[in-house]
Computed example of a mutant assay.
Amino acid sequence: MTGTAMHQPTTPRSVLFMCGMNAIRSPMAEALAKAALPAGTYVASAGVRHGERDPFVDVVLDEIGLSVGRHQPRTLDELEDDYFDLIVTLAPEAHHLALDLTRSMAVDVVYWPTPDPTVATGTREQIVDAYRAVRDHLATLINRRLVVAPAGEKA
């Protein structure tokens, strides 16, 4: 990457978000990115292994007017497309797999360490707060690192 490219970021045309089971972090990131990135940007998510849909994801996305729709967790093998400009990994196991799979490909792989909210304990509200924290963390990263402001504006 040239020095100019680092200072003049471009919005990727296709982004894959990866986590452990495609149940919480990556589908949440997918929904947030679809809302934030320009129309026509292909955004998908996948997990290293199969998982179950998590209802708390629906709760915290609904609070900000978003939804994962009919999303069902899927693995990399179940993706329709296998080429992306950027792969964003949200868990260590996903990062290691992405690096292994893209060794001979021209694709950027970045790791955004993101906590697993399922480890939260306490009341329902305390657990939902952990999911909100993940949602807000991902929204901040997407807006700071993937959303490119029009020329002359600050991102």
Rank of each mutant, 00 (worst) to 15 (best):
T118D: 02
V48A: 08
T114I: 01
T118A: 11
V60K: 06
I64Y: 05
L37F: 02
T102R: 09
D54G: 00
R103P: 15
V148N: 09
A44Y: 08
P38Q: 09
G152H: 10
A33S: 04
E63Y: 13
V148I: 15
Q72W: 04
E52Q: 10
E30A: 00
Y42N: 09
D85N: 04
M105D: 10
V43Q: 13
A35K: 07
V148H: 12
A29H: 05
V48F: 01
L90T: 03
S26F: 01
R103F: 10
A39V: 14
P27C: 05
A139E: 13
L138D: 13
T118Y: 10
H95F: 04
Q8C: 15
A91Q: 03
S14A: 14
T123V: 10
P117H: 08
V109Q: 11
M21T: 07
P55Q: 08
D129G: 15
R53N: 00
M18Y: 06
V147R: 08
R135D: 10
M28R: 14
A139V: 06
T102E: 14
E30R: 11
P12D: 00
W112I: 12
H50G: 08
T121R: 15
R145W: 11
S26P: 10
W112L: 06
R25W: 02
R53C: 04
R132A: 14
V48H: 06
R70N: 14
R144C: 08
L86T: 05
V88K: 02
